[in-house]
């Protein structure tokens, strides 16, 4: 059996909404997640991506047991998360980028020590882990600072340490790099990669930063409107949208959309136009045709990038 086993998972929310200027209340159902099926094996690093409101956080909450599914089958490490929430808590770590598990008024060190007691981490193990994470995440100078005085990035690193002290098999990260600067993001990614390599920790990470995915994940799960629209390795996702490349043309003067055989104009912005053409086709005849009929100031060719692929996926609503 897989470490994480999700079959036809569903979560609907009942929301009550006022209509007629507040005189009437109607009951609405929001399907946050539906028909979601996937399996994750030990040691995988999976990127879980999708547009706002796609159902990522809802899924993570169900995986951690703090939200009960309304339908489908869900097992994590053989346990039913919502029923065995506390037993599962000892085997997983969770970081919600927008929330903190640390105690606001206590120094970082005190939060860690409370967690040690809470999870009954053997002292030697605790000291070794703390030492290592503090070193790797560069938190030594912050250990005695109350959490409320930490910067966002420092707090996030504190939260990640807190989530890992009890050696969880699975680490869920819901937007861990949100609000971090480039250097901190880089260091965090490096840390997560090392964690996975050294300890085989399974990583499930949601993010809107595709560089996180590129740097970390061998596998990508794309969710949109509550259901998976892509599940596979990153190169396969790139190949999906790899069907087109883009020729960016800067004309000397503004002009109506360029008409040349083999390419279509996707966007016009002043004198600049974007033409897309099949990735396997050669750019040379298209460039020649454009140059023959228009006054061109500059030309460049864009390879398909993952962001575009995903934007494409979202707008098509599936593969």
């Amino acid at each position: 059996m897989s470490l994480i086993d999700v079959r036809d998972l569903e979560r609907t929310f009942v929301v009550r909404r006022k209509v007629d200027g507040g005189r009437r209340r109607v009951r609405d159902e929001v399907r946050a997640v539906h028909d979601l099926t996937f399996a994750i094996e030990p040691g995988e690093m999976v990127g879980y991506i999708g547009p706002n409101g796609a159902g990522k956080s809802t899924t993570i909450k169900m995986l951690t047991g703090i939200l009960v599914p309304t339908g489908g089958h869900l097992r994590v490490a053989g346990l039913d998360p919502s029923r065995d929430r506390v037993a599962l808590a000892r085997r997983i770590g969770v970081v919600f980028g927008q929330r903190t598990t640390l105690w606001w008024d206590l120094p970082l060190r005190d939060s860690f020590e409370l967690l040690q007691k809470m999870y009954r981490i053997p002292p030697a193990r605790f000291r070794a882990n703390l030492e290592r994470f503090v070193e790797l995440l560069d938190l030594r100078d912050q250990l005695d600072t109350p959490v409320r005085q930490l910067s966002l990035g420092q707090r996030m690193r504190g939260d990640i340490t807190a989530a890992l002290l009890h050696d969880p098999e699975i680490l869920y990260l819901d937007e861990p790099t949100i609000g971090l600067d480039v250097v901190s993001k880089g260091r965090l990614r490096e840390f997560l990669r090392a964690l996975n390599a050294e300890r085989g920790t399974t990583l499930v990470l949601t993010t809107h930063d595709l560089q996180d995915i590129e740097a970390l994940c061998d596998r990508v799960l794309v969710i949109d409107h509550g259901t998976a629209v892509f599940d596979g390795p990153l190169p396969a996702l790139q190949a999906q949208g790899g069907s087109t490349r883009t020729l960016v043309v800067d004309l000397v003067d503004e002009a109506p959309a360029i008409e040349v055989p083999g390419a279509v104009v996707r966007r016009v912005e002043g004198p600049r136009q974007w033409l897309s053409f099949p990735a396997e086709a050669s750019a040379a005849p298209i460039v020649a045709a454009v140059a023959a009929s228009y006054d061109v100031a500059d030309l460049s060719i864009q390879e398909p990038d993952i962001e575009e692929v995903i934007r494409d996926l979202y707008s098509r609503g599936g593969v």
């Binding site: 703090i66 929430r85 000892r90 969770v94 903190t100 598990t101 809470m118």
Partner: peptide
């Protein structure tokens, strides 16, 4: 008061999955 604040912000959901 800390509890009320964690309920208001939703952080309490995290507290609920702790083994205590």
């Amino acid at each position: 008061d800390d509890l009320a604040e964690r309920i208001r912000t939703g952080d309490v959901a995290i507290d609920l999955y702790r083994p205590v």
